[in-house]
Design a protein around this nucleic acid. Sequence first.
DNA 1: CATTGTGAAGCGTTTCACAGCC
DNA 2: GGCTGTGAAACGCTTCACAATG
Lengths: 227, 227
Amino acid sequence: MADRPRRRIPEATVSRLPVYLRLLNELADAETHHVSSEQLAELGGVNAAKVRKDLSYLGTYGVRGVGYEVRYLVYQIERELGLNHDWPVVIVGAGNLGQALSGYGGFGQKGFPVAGVVDVDPSKIGSVIGGVRVRHIDELPQIVASRSVAIGVVAVPATGAQDAADRLVKAGVTSILNFAPAVIAVPRGINVRKVDLALELQILSYHEQSRSTTLRAVPGSGKSASA
Amino acid sequence: MADRPRRRIPEATVSRLPVYLRLLNELADAETHHVSSEQLAELGGVNAAKVRKDLSYLGTYGVRGVGYEVRYLVYQIERELGLNHDWPVVIVGAGNLGQALSGYGGFGQKGFPVAGVVDVDPSKIGSVIGGVRVRHIDELPQIVASRSVAIGVVAVPATGAQDAADRLVKAGVTSILNFAPAVIAVPRGINVRKVDLALELQILSYHEQSRSTTLRAVPGSGKSASA
DNA sequence: CATTGTGAAGCGTTTCACAGCC
DNA sequence: GGCTGTGAAACGCTTCACAATG
């Protein structure tokens, strides 16, 4: 109540807060009441100083000599991340991925209920996936407006990604989670994050590649024994 | 052939090379033969100087006054990322996600054929998904050894993620793509990347949250008009 | 006295600005 | 003339190290 955390939180910290939150929730489930930055760092696989600096952006919630109170910290992180209320999402694309996401369920449990699923393909309209009826993409504006949807999920093939993003933005969505293997252009002020399987695999490929180049500079034989 | 690109490529650059590669392949499909850093930057939504610096780590492949030759650059990036040969992957977890990943198909087309899918659950063993028979997780070492698998995919619930990672590492895998919403600990030298839906949504939630805090410090009404 | 919160140093990444080159 | 390649500056993030403190 005392100090308003009116500081700007660095992007790198924002992307770690959900990790801490998850760990803290696990600790809370295990009836652990206090945790030190050292312990959290161990669990999260990061540096303890980083944990402290990250948490310090939220406010002064630790106690010297003691650590952090788990439940209180959970509360503060949730508040800071805006997780103290639901964020309905709309999914564009009712293909394999859209269906999987909608049917997943864990979505709604985590505070991101599926407000709607839309598709361009008439043959998909009307089918029910994950308890939600698939509607035509032209209904996007109504869905977004009526349920105050701020977050849209792009789950269409790469070729349709930009169109999906354009429609989401036009409908009033201001954050987009893009699963399509494509770069999407959006107006300033719109947040985009991507989840890109091929990209991640290619990054791992690079590391494997450089591993073999480093360990043995012998081309040809791709065999490598275990260390 | 002339200059060996024996420089260490910064991690930030590595994670952008797959993006450039995709854009370049699209350009190649469109019969575009040359591209400037400016154009690539435009397509990728990044700064042109960044594109040039990124590409310069690969070698001196541009031509001043002209730009980069698309197909040649594709070749060089693929070589650098180790995409000039296949990287078979093994998927741990034959649940919804494991099935979706295995059945996806785009996996193999992109140079990451599914060498095997394993699960602990006996009831899942033997079923065929994406043309691959699900085997018991104890067969992991044989699968990894016989197919020289370097990359493992963790597609199990959070509670089983660490065990899955441990087994993959023990079997000889040196890179892991983790889809489970959990931090996994691995020995030094093992590469881990994560794909975390909840985390991404929570990051977007933060930005939406701070948007509403910034624009109108009025709590209660969550209505916001379009710009 | 264990542990936080944080200046300051260190390090990696981004961007600028322009020399170099085709 | 146009565009690359790259030093150097600017920036942000990470880590150190330690004073502050319950």
